[in-house]
Each structure stands twice: as C-alpha cells, then as structure tokens.
Simulated assay, not measured.
Amino acid sequence: MITSFFNKSKPIYFVVVFFIVLLAFVNARIYLVNGGINLDYILKQTVLVFVVYSCILLLSFIANKNNLTNRNSYEVLLFSLFLLFITQTTSNGNVLFSNFFVLLGLRRIVSMRSPKNIKKKLFDAAFWIALASLFYFWSILFFVLILLSLVLYTDNNIRHWLIPFLGVVTILIISCSVSILIFDNYFDLINWNPQISYDFSNYNSAAYLISITVLLSFGIWSSIYYLNNIKKQKKVFRASFKTIILAAIIGFIIVILAPGKNGSEFLFLFAPLAIIIANYIEIIPDKWFKELFLGVLILLPFTLLLL
C-alpha cells in the first residue's frame, strides 16, 4: 500500500514531502530560537526552506533525467525522511547552501554520460563545487568526483582533465575580486579552512545513535544490491550509477572529517543515499518485505521525534 502510493511521480507527493521538510525545520529550531521570532528571522528561515526544497527538486531531476530510478517518488520521500531522522541537518545555513551547489555540480557530472558539451559540463561541475566549498570547506572533496568520473568514462583527452581546475580558479578569482571590493582584502570572502575533528561525542544520544545506525545499516545493505544491479543497467548508464556510489562514499568521508560534528554534515550523504536505497526498494521482489522496509523508514523518524 505504501510503496504503491509512492510508486509514481506525481505533484501530490511533493506536497507530502514539503510538510515532512517543514516538520524537520520546526523541530530543529524549537530550542534554537533566541531573542524571539521576528520578521527577519522568518524571512531567513523561509529562504532556507526554499533552498532545501530546491535540493529535493534537483535530486528528483537528477534521478529521473539520468534514469537513476524508475520515475517514482522514492528518492524525494527518502531525502525528506532523512532530514527528519537527523533534523540538525537543516540547522546550518552554510551547509544547506553548500549542499545545493554540490547537487548542481553532481547534476553536471552525471550528465557526462553524453559526450555533448563535455567541456561545459566539466567546467560547470567544478565551478559549482568550488562555490559550495566557500560555504563549507570539505565539500571541495566532491571535486575528486569529477576526476573519478573522467576515469569511469575513460576520457583520455588531456584538455578535459585541465578544465575542472579552471572552474576552481575562476571561483577563486571572482571571490578575491568581490572580497577586495567589499572588505578591501583578498581572502575575507574565502572560507577555505581545512580543520578536522574525530570527536564523535556529540552523537552520544539515543536519537543520534538510532538514526545513524538505521541510515548506515539500510544504506550499506542497499549498496550491496545497488552494486550488483549496476551490471544489469545499459552500458551507457553504468558510469552514472557508479558516480552515485562514489558520491555517497565522499559524503561519508565528509561526516568523518567534519570539524564541528553537529549533525548538519550528514546532509551531503543524503542525496546519493536516497538514490541508492530507492533503487533497492524498486528491486525488492517480496511485496510484504518492500512494505516493511519502507514502513520502517517512514515510521521511525516520527517516533524518534518523541525521544
């Protein structure tokens, strides 16, 4: 019943997803509001909600445009549920903007399966990822995904390997120029500060531990089937599917390296993880197990809100 409802992509599902995202936002801010709620605060939060919802629409576009899922709403539902699992992912505005730009870059990387406008795609991908790193430094790791994708597509054109670096340099030049105009300094606008922390004590709560355990266990289990399923895809799509699993690995590395482990760092993992788990849900042969699998992912985050 649940899987049948979300088996097709319809506008009504985005309304459901919107309210799940809104619930995650409200829950994350119940104890964070200082100095009362005013118009300025409401406008800022409205912009952040818009950014997250834009990420969801962008995720849907990436998955459907590149046949990464079977044109259903599983990936957008899962992304919104992940936000509800770890509501702190909505609390850091810089991370939200950074993730949005990473998804713009991922969109261009995945579209490299088509050789059309390949130079523009490489430049755009590097440009967006470099821009994302201005908001959250460790998102620069997704730049490696561009180079790995060139390996997957066996691209031996040396010029193609140089173009991504031009995209990064372009952002650097623009940032320095704007910084000089606004702050009269070259690097005030550039927040490239590679701090690392291995202190995971912030995750020592029941809600965090349950959420992380469920997401990682469901993600790893789904990844096994996802990797096996790649072989069944058409040859032209296989590299795109491999790109998603690599993006998930990079997202996990960011979680490990993140200097301030407040939960927001998990956001970079959510988009590729949603596609991976959505793929697994599609291939589950037993109807009852498919309902149970998705039912747990839907009910558990709402239950955790009570902890």
Rank of each mutant, 00 (worst) to 15 (best):
N117L: 12
N117Q: 12
K119E: 09
K119Q: 09
K120C: 00
K120M: 04
K120S: 08
K121F: 05
K121G: 04
L122D: 14
L122Y: 13
L122T: 08
L122M: 12
L122K: 07
F123L: 13
F123M: 10
F123S: 05
D124C: 06
D124G: 07
A125R: 12
A125Q: 12
A125N: 11
A125V: 08
A126H: 12
A126T: 15
F127D: 11
F127G: 10
F127K: 15
F127P: 12
W128E: 07
W128F: 15
W128M: 14
I129G: 06
A130V: 01
A130R: 01
A130F: 03
L131W: 06
A132F: 05
A132C: 08
A132V: 02
S133H: 12
S133A: 15
L134P: 04
L134S: 09
F135S: 09
F135Q: 08
F135Y: 15
F135W: 14
F135H: 11
Y136I: 05
Y136V: 09
Y136K: 12
F137D: 03
F137L: 02
W138F: 05
W138S: 03
W138G: 03
W138H: 06
S139T: 13
S139I: 05
S139M: 06
I140K: 06
I140H: 09
I140S: 11
L141F: 14
L141I: 01
F142M: 03
F142Q: 04
F142H: 03
F143K: 00
F143M: 05
V144E: 06
V144A: 15
V144I: 15
V144K: 03
V144T: 15
L145C: 02
I146G: 06
I146V: 15
I146P: 01
I146F: 11
L147V: 13
L147N: 06
L147W: 07
L148H: 02
L148V: 10
L148K: 01
L148I: 14
S149L: 04
L150W: 08
L150M: 15
V151Y: 08
L152S: 11
L152E: 13
Y153P: 00
Y153V: 00
Y153R: 12
T154M: 11
D155I: 04
D155K: 04
N156I: 13
N156E: 14
N157W: 00
N157V: 03
N157M: 01
